[in-house]
Nucleic acid binder design. Structure first.
Length: 259
DNA sequence: TGACCATAGCTACAACATTA
DNA sequence: TAATGTTGTAGCTATGGTCA
């Protein structure tokens, strides 16, 4: 996993747009037994989930209301590392939120109850860690080709052809894409695009007034138009709109919702 | 698991719009 | 007027359906 996290008293502004992260998250609401996920196009519409929910890899944005997140604990999984704990292919969770109860059964409810009664953050992290270990559905082994591809994507800045990575991993392009999507939750190409988008967000975070042409080149985009295209795809916002709306948010891929 | 094929979508580039 | 931001498009690539 990438990290365990605990959110207490999130920023008190209205809704936040969450752009694609390429990661699977598990969140447990300790304040109330419910999560509401809002439609980015129609933020007045929401879907309700139980207080323990898995957020699959998203290729587009979704919206939350931080005012509803008084106390939330969760896990962020590294790419390709969630499926052994969840007992289902990551591709089954793509672009979706799923009640943890649907994957873990009643033990998901019990875990939430125990987390709610725990006294300290340390106690809660221990409980969560033990629950994850107890739910290992299979050995924590990624397919060698997926491991190879994630390593390769991690080292390269850009310009990798998926067919070349598949060939280097010793699989047909078709088979490689199937395996990668099953374990990571998105196609290799989409994963690379999300990774590059996150790199652009990280570059922006370090700069008060980003030079978009520079950011595009530094992150491996052919030019600025590609950067804008991906921003619209992953966050429904142009880069300038994203910078304007991100200031109050805790996470780099979050932006406040305006209008 | 691989080959073939149709097509959706991405890349590379050009051009236009806006802003300082 | 130059720099920055946005949009359009032709050609190419990645993806997914189907079949062997």
């Amino acid at each position: 996993m990438e990290r365990l996290w605990l959110l207490i008293n999130a920023p008190a502004h209205s809704k936040e747009r969450i752009a694609a992260s390429g990661r699977i998250d598990l969140g447990i609401n300790l304040h109330e037994n419910e999560f509401r996920i809002y439609d980015p196009a129609k933020p007045e519409r929401s879907k309700r989930f139980s207080g323990a929910v898995v957020s699959g890899t998203h290729s587009g944005p979704f919206v939350i209301d931080p005012r509803e997140l008084v106390s939330v604990i969760g896990v962020r999984f590294r790419p390709g590392c969630a499926f052994p704990f969840l007992g289902t292919a990551a591709s089954e969770l793509a672009d979706a939120h799923v009640d943890l109860e649907a994957l873990w059964g009643t033990s998901a409810i019990e875990l939430r109850e125990r987390l709610c009664t725990a006294k300290t953050p340390g106690e809660r992290f221990n409980l969560l860690e033990k629950a994850l270990v107890a739910h290992l559905f299979r050995p924590l082994e990624r397919h060698y080709a997926v491991r190879f591809a994630l390593d390769t994507f991690g080292r390269a800045n850009s310009g990798l052809a998926i067919r070349d990575v598949a060939r280097d991993a010793g699989l047909s392009q078709r088979r490689f894409i199937q395996l990668f999507a099953r374990e990571v939750g998105m196609s290799p190409k989409l994963f690379c695009r999300v990774r590059r988008f996150r790199q652009a967000l990280e570059t922006m975070r370090r700069t008060a007034v980003p030079n978009w042409g520079r950011v595009a080149v530094d992150c491996g985009y052919y030019d600025q138009s590609h950067l804008i295209h991906d921003f619209r795809f992953f966050s429904n916002l142009s880069p300038t709109e994203f910078v304007r709306q991100r200031s109050d948010c805790v996470m780099q891929n979050h932006a406040t919702l305006v209008g």
